[in-house]
Design a protein around this nucleic acid. Structure first.
Lengths: 308, 308
DNA sequence: CCATATTACGGCATGCGTAACGATC
DNA sequence: GATCGTTACGCATGCCGTAATATGG
C-alpha cells in the first residue's frame, strides 16, 4: 500500500470520478493514476470504483469506506508535517477559518488583525458559509477551526470551546413607533413586517421556538443570510430587523435605532470547533486566545484532554 | 514521506531505541532503517531521536508527538486493509480480545465457543491483564476489543458498550458461622479475615468505598488477582472471600457456600470497549452479539454514531 | 469522432543490501 | 575489543511519462 494510491483514489473521487481531472490536479499522468488505483484495488481484493467498461460510473460500498479512511490517513499525515513546521520554529503556514458572515464581519476582525501582526508569515484563509457548511469544512479538515453558533457542537469529530455569549436586538428606522415603547414585548413584533436571518441559521431555530411558545406569529417578510442585508432593507423602510446585537454599529448605522431584546430571547453561545485529532500548532493556541481571552494554552489543552 | 519511514520510526521506538533490533523484526537491513529515519527527520526538519554521537539515547518532544501520530496512521492503514478482507468475503483474520481474569474465565467461554464455531477461520487471541492494561491495549490498537469493569470508560479514544451488570458474593467454607446469619451485613465482614481482589482492580474501589462509608474496616489479609486464587485460600480456611457472583461455580465449588451480597454493594457494570476509529468487521458485530445479545448490529452502529 | 480509461514499454529515481568505517561503551 | 549506528556503493525494483490501443458517449 502506497500513500500515492490513497491520494489518487481520494482525488479521483473528489473530481467526480474523473481519472484525467485527478491526474491534472495531481500534476501527473493519467496512466499513472489509473495504474496505481488498479494496483491498490488488487491489493485490497476489492473494487473501489464501479466501472462501466472503461468508464468510472460510481463508488462501491467498500469504496465509500476506504475513501473515508483514506481521508483520515491523509489528515493525520498533514498533522505530522505540521509538527515538523511547528518545531522547526518556522512559524509560517496556513490558518483556515470557517465561519459565518456575522462572526467574520463583526467579531473576528479584531482577533484577525492582532493575529496577522503577530504572525505575518501565516497565510490566513476565511471560508464563509452557513453553520452546517462550517461544521462540515472543519470535520473534513478543509478548515482548521470553525466558528459558529450551536450546530457545530453536534459533530462528534469536533472539540468545541464556548467562545462568547450573545443576544439579539431589533433594529428599526429612526422615529419608528417602537422606539417609543417602554419595554419591547414579543407581541410588538407581530404588528410590523419582520426581516431576519435565514432559517437555515442557528439561533433562528431558537427565535422561532420563542415565538411559537409565546403563541405569537411574526410576519416574516424577508430572510437574509447576513445582517448587512437585513439592515439595508430596514433602512429602506421595508420592515423591522432582528439581528445579533453585535452586528449593530453605532456609527455606521446611525440612521437606525437598536432596541435590545435580551429580555425576550435566551442567550446564544458562539462556539469554536476543531477536529479532535488536529495537531495544535503554536499559533493556533494564540489565535484562540486572541479571539477568546479566557482560553489560554492550558485551558485549551484541558478541553482536549477531556474530549478526545 | 513514506509509509516505511513511519513504520521504521515506530519500531525503533518500540524496540527501546535500537535500530538493529528494529531492522531485525522488520526483516530488513540496519543501514536501510538508519537511512530512512534520517531522510524522514530531514524532511520534517527536526530530530525524532536524541543522539549521543552515534547512539540513540532518547526521544525528543516533537518525536513523541510524531510517534503517536505515526501509530494513528498505521492503525488507520490497518483499518483499510481490514475493509479489504471484509468485503472480499474472506471471513478470516484475527480477533484480539483484551480482558481480565474473571471475564476470561467465567463470562467469555460461552461466547468464544460459539464464535469459534461460527468463524473457524478467525484466529482468536486472548490478552489477559488488569483493567488499566486492558484499556491501554485497546487504545493503542494492540487489541480489537477490551472487556472490563468501569475504568475502561475513562479513555476518550474508546467507545463503550455496557455489557452486563453484576454484583458480589461472599464465599465461605461449608459450615462457617456466617452461613447461619439470617441476612449478611457489612458489620459481619469485620469479624473474619477477608480475602478479595487486588485493589488495583476496579470494583474494589467501589467495595472499599462502601466499607469506608459504613465506618467498617474489613480485615483484608490477602488480595489476589483472580477469583480462583481467592477461592483456593478460602478453601484452606484462611478467611472469607469476596468475589464476583459469576465466579462461583455450584459444581466445582461444592466445598464452599455462596452468600449473595447484592444488597450490600451497588451493582457494577462490565463494559466492552473499542477504539472509536476501529473498522467494524462483520465478525466483530457478531462476537459482541454473542457476548451481549441486546447489541445487534444496528444497536452497535447507533452507539458509534453518538460517540464518534 | 472525441473524450477517456487502459495497456505497453523504456528511462529514471529510489530504496535495499553488502561492505567498510567510525564511534561508543 | 565488541557492539551498534552511519556512510559508500552497486543493484534491483517500481514508479512515471510517452505512445499506442480500446471503449463509450
Amino acid at each position: 500500500m502506497k500513500l500515492h494510491q490513497l491520494k489518487y483514489v481520494h482525488e479521483v473521487a473528489r473530481q467526480g470520478l474523473s481519472v484525467s481531472a485527478a491526474a491534472e490536479t495531481l500534476h501527473t499522468s493519467q496512466p499513472g493514476v489509473s495504474k496505481q488505483i488498479q494496483l491498490f484495488e488488487e491489493e485490497l481484493n476489492l473494487q473501489i470504483f464501479q466501472r462501466n467498461g472503461k468508464r468510472l460510473t460510481g463508488i462501491t460500498m467498500p469504496g465509500q469506506i476506504i475513501l473515508k479512511l483514506a481521508a483520515n490517513v491523509m489528515f493525520e499525515l498533514d498533522n505530522i508535517k505540521r509538527v515538523g513546521d511547528e518545531f522547526s520554529k518556522v512559524e509560517s503556514g496556513t490558518l483556515t477559518i470557517a465561519t459565518t458572515h456575522t462572526q467574520a464581519r463583526y467579531k473576528l476582525p479584531a482577533a484577525i488583525q492582532q493575529f496577522m501582526l503577530a504572525y505575518p508569515q501565516v497565510k490566513l484563509n476565511l471560508h464563509q458559509g452557513n453553520p452546517t457548511q462550517v461544521t462540515d469544512w472543519v470535520a473534513t479538515g478543509e478548515a482548521d477551526i470553525g466558528i459558529a453558533t450551536e450546530s457545530i457542537g453536534q459533530e462528534p469529530r469536533l472539540v468545541c470551546l464556548p467562545c462568547y455569549e450573545w443576544n439579539r436586538s431589533l433594529v428599526v428606522p429612526k422615529g419608528h413607533p417602537l422606539t417609543q415603547a417602554p419595554l419591547l414585548s414579543l407581541q410588538d413584533f407581530a404588528h410590523y413586517p419582520l426581516i431576519t436571518y435565514d432559517f437555515a441559521f442557528t439561533g433562528s431555530t431558537t427565535v422561532s421556538k420563542v415565538f411559537h411558545d409565546a403563541g405569537v406569529t411574526p410576519n416574516v417578510v424577508l430572510t437574509a443570510i447576513d445582517a448587512d442585508v437585513i439592515k439595508t432593507y430596514v433602512n429602506l423602510g421595508l420592515g423591522i430587523g432582528l439581528i445579533a446585537s453585535m452586528a449593530f454599529d453605532e456609527k455606521r448605522d446611525e440612521s437606525l435605532v437598536r432596541l435590545d431584546c435580551s429580555h425576550l430571547f435566551p442567550q446564544s453561545t458562539t462556539y469554536l470547533g476543531m477536529r479532535k485529532d488536529t495537531f495544535m500548532r503554536g499559533y493556533l493556541y494564540d489565535f484562540i486566545s486572541m479571539l477568546s481571552p479566557q482560553f489560554n494554552r492550558s485551558a485549551i489543552d484541558e478541553v482536549f484532554k477531556i474530549t478526545r
